[in-house]
């Protein structure tokens, strides 16, 4: 399949994520949107990895490792995302236990 499909898909997913973060009010949903952003990035990384690998092969480089770093990057993104999930969910739970709400509209104790 042409690389464009992947790029479009990833960009659309990313934009959905960004829109979600900016418009939704529920902390969990915002968080899920952020995860969506990260995963769209992962998708794009893998697609680009394949693309660069194919290009390197086409350019005549035999046994090239071009593109490998992108897939490694994906692993790191996953790990970091997991760490973020751990911390973020802990924070949301802590918040929920104190306020019984995860609506970020109610987060205005700091305004004044």
């Amino acid at each position: 399949m042409p690389i464009n499909y992947y790029i479009f898909l990833a960009i659309i997913l990313f934009c959905i994520g960004v829109t979600g973060v900016l418009t939704r009010r529920n902390a969990i949903i915002i968080f899920m949107c952020i995860e969506l952003m990260l995963n769209s990035v992962n998708l794009l990384l893998v697609a680009f990895s394949k693309m660069h690998h194919a290009r390197a092969l086409a350019a005549g480089a035999a046994n090239t490792t071009a593109g490998i770093e992108a897939q490694l990057f994906v692993f790191f993104i996953m790990v970091v995302a997991a760490a973020e999930v751990a911390v973020g969910l802990a924070i949301i739970v802590m918040m929920y236990r104190n306020t019984h709400s995860v609506d970020i509209n109610f987060l205005n104790r700091l305004k004044n």
């Binding site: 990313f14 973060v21 990035v41 973020e84 924070i91 987060l107 104790r109």
Partner: peptide, 21 residues
């Protein structure tokens, strides 16, 4: 403190997403 941490987290993670893109 809770609120600050939640805000920081959401915003920080969001900017990380942007950075990754």
């Amino acid at each position: 403190s809770n609120e600050a941490s939640l805000k920081y987290f959401l915003m920080g993670a969001f900017s990380t997403g942007i950075m990754l893109m």
